[in-house]
């Protein structure tokens, strides 16, 4: 009976994962491997294709004052505008992750302050994990899989923009070798969200109890779904250490951008999350 409950939990989390996250790993891998004929992404590999891609997806434009246009130069403006649209997408993704978190059985019954803390500290880790299926060693899908942006192009941007994605590529290439599928990912995301060691939590015990159940469910899921992959459960959990370092480095880069870029403005939701984070 206990394992039946754990399987039911896995199914429930997988269903809400499918409900709230529009681009699944299955779909992303089909696009990346060219297995879908109707979904060939537009490739951004230089500034010219970035401008074309921008028009194609009609991304929200950052208002620019005319006098700054000439001062900054058109290329600087494009980079800032692109990262501005990345922020808008990240804010939407935070909203999707919040809905997913609320669907974890017991989450909404936790102290509301603790729900805020769990999301504040967990959401960037979740977003980085969710980026992995969109990436391969050569680049990443963006804009719901409509666009493929090359890793080389991202590396060619001026500092510190060029340093933003490279650590995520390095992590993702290794993480993807674990070959988790969407149903495994759903449970792993829930485990990350339900971390009882986040700073400032008021009532740790119910969070740890919830996480323990999801961990049992993940362990069972991985044994059943990947019977030949030895120690996969332990390998997946080890990734949580790398994730914390990635988030710390990411937040530091964002702080640097705030200090060095005149026209940089951080989305209010991302500001809330990153303020006093680490």
């Amino acid at each position: 009976p206990e394992s039946a409950d754990l399987r039911a939990l896995a199914r429930q989390l997988y269903e809400s994962y499918l409900k709230y996250f529009p681009l699944t790993k299955a779909k992303a891998r089909a696009i990346l491997s060219g297995k879908t004929s109707d979904n060939t992404p537009f490739v951004i590999h230089d500034m010219k294709s970035l401008l074309e891609g921008e028009q194609m997806i009609n991304c929200r434009q950052m208002p620019m004052q005319e006098h700054r246009r000439s001062d900054m130069g058109i290329m600087h403006e494009v980079e800032l505008r692109f990262f501005h649209s990345c922020q808008s997408r990240s804010a939407e993704a935070v909203s999707e992750v919040t809905e997913f978190a609320k669907s974890i059985p017991g989450f909404v019954n936790l102290d509301l302050n603790d729900q805020v803390t769990l999301l504040k500290y967990g959401v960037i880790e979740v977003l980085i994990i969710m980026m992995a299926p969109l990436m391969n060693k050569d680049g990443t899908l963006i804009s719901y899989g409509q666009i493929f942006m090359t890793r080389e192009f991202l590396k060619s941007l001026r500092k510190p923009f060029c340093e933003m994605m490279e650590p995520k590529f390095e992590f993702s290439v290794k993480f993807n070798m674990l070959e988790l599928d969407d149903s495994d990912m759903a449970l792993f995301l829930a485990v990350i969200i339900l971390s009882g060691d986040r700073p400032g939590l008021l009532n740790v015990k119910p969070i740890e109890d919830l996480q323990e159940t999801v961990l049992h469910s993940l362990e069972l899921q991985l044994k059943m779904n990947h019977p030949d992959s030895l120690q996969l459960f332990a390998k997946v959990l080890q990734k949580m250490t790398d994730l914390r370092q990635l988030v710390t480095d990411h937040v530091q880069l964002i702080q640097l951008l705030k200090e060095t870029e005149v026209d940089w403005c951080l989305h209010p939701l991302l500001q809330e999350i990153m303020r006093d984070l680490y």
């Binding site: 935070v94 999301l119 504040k120 400032g200 989305h267």
Partner: peptide, 21 residues
């Protein structure tokens, strides 16, 4: 904490439709 995280709080309290970000 809720006061410092008004948007997150709103997202958590919002019952169904997505919050306009």
């Amino acid at each position: 904490l809720k006061e410092k995280h008004k948007i997150l709080h709103r997202l958590l309290q919002n019952s169904s439709s997505p919050v306009d970000l």
